Simulated assay, not measured.
Amino acid sequence: MEKINKSVLNQVITPRNPESYKGNYGKVLIISGSTHFGGATILCSSAAVNTGSGLVTVATIPEKFTAINVKIPEAMTIDYQNKKALTEAIKNSDVIAVGPGLGTSSIAKGVVKAALTQTNNKQTLILDASAITIIAQENWPLESKANLILTPHQGEWQRLSGLDIAEQNPKSNAQSLQQLNPEALLVLKKHHSEVYYHETTAQIEAGNPGMATGGMGDTLTGIIAGFIAQFGFSFQTVSAGLLLHSTIADKLNKDNYVVLPSKVIEKLPKYMAKYSYKD
């Protein structure tokens, strides 16, 4: 298995053109949240904003709008229960991330189905958390015209792949991904997380037990969305987002027993600036 090292950060994170505007850095749509899980939406969306996405729209339930607008004034909000508004937002986005805190209600199922069926081959669709659970429960084919990224933890991957956690190894994971969708990219979240894409399997040697707290995966999804919006869909782009997430967390863990996702998010602009400099 290949190792993902910090050179990928310098390769992917590039200095911004002095003559820039927000349209240069991609449009991200985060479809997330439910009555009991509003924090996932804030963390995912904050991560996308702080990685530098040009425009971030959050599709969630209206009762969460105020919290999002206060916490993330840079993001726009729409009601994902409004089918017309959701369809328009999907159509106009470069990257769509669906699942954090979404739950598995009938409305959530409709939202996931819309993301799967309404995206096109110029877009990237990230399936996380509840979206993966819904697809597994409903036994839907893992199909989309968009570039497809899966970001499950091992329990979610078990539901989708049918592999018990003890059976999850590079060979079996790659085989299962091939059967589910040979064009999809898998980020398997675990101790030393792994990335699978086509014939390539790679692993980061970063991460720490302080990261074992709610919202860490939601934050990663937002980072990956922001990276793809700016730097394009590729194995390297996703690997860089994954590695930066854990690299920042490792720095914080030196002085903090628990690494809070919100603290990782705060450090994103600083570390992206650091790795954008070319020696």
Rank of each mutant, 00 (worst) to 15 (best):
Q158L: 05
G232F: 03
K251Q: 14
L102P: 12
K122A: 11
N82S: 15
K27C: 07
N253A: 13
V58E: 08
N10P: 02
K189S: 07
A48C: 14
N92H: 12
E19S: 15
Q154I: 12
I135A: 02
E138K: 12
S176V: 02
S193Q: 03
Q11E: 13
G39E: 05
T201D: 03
I204M: 08
V12C: 05
I204A: 08
E183Y: 08
A249G: 07
A202F: 05
S239L: 09
Y196E: 00
Q158S: 11
K190C: 14
P261T: 05
G226D: 06
T213F: 05
K122C: 10
I31K: 01
T119A: 02
S234E: 07
E88S: 11
V238L: 08
G110P: 00
I4R: 04
F231R: 14
A225E: 10
G52S: 12
S130E: 08
L142P: 11
Q236N: 15
F233E: 06
V258Q: 14
A114I: 08
D128P: 07
M272N: 01
L180I: 04
L244M: 15
K274E: 04
L243C: 01
A206M: 13
Q118E: 13
L142G: 07
I72N: 09
G101I: 03
V258D: 02
T87E: 12
S239A: 15
Y21H: 14
R16S: 14
K254V: 04
R159M: 09
S193R: 09
K113I: 03
T133A: 12
I68V: 13
A212S: 13
E167H: 07
K270C: 01
K267A: 05
I132L: 08
G214V: 15
E19A: 14
R16M: 04
P182S: 13
N50M: 06
S45R: 06
K254G: 10
D128V: 03
F227C: 14
N208K: 07
S53T: 11
I134V: 08
T237L: 01
I13N: 04
H36N: 10
D279F: 08
K27D: 03
I4Q: 10
L102C: 09
T60D: 10
G214C: 10
A212F: 04
K83A: 15
S239H: 15
Y275D: 01
I107G: 00
N139A: 12
A212C: 05
G226W: 00
T124C: 02
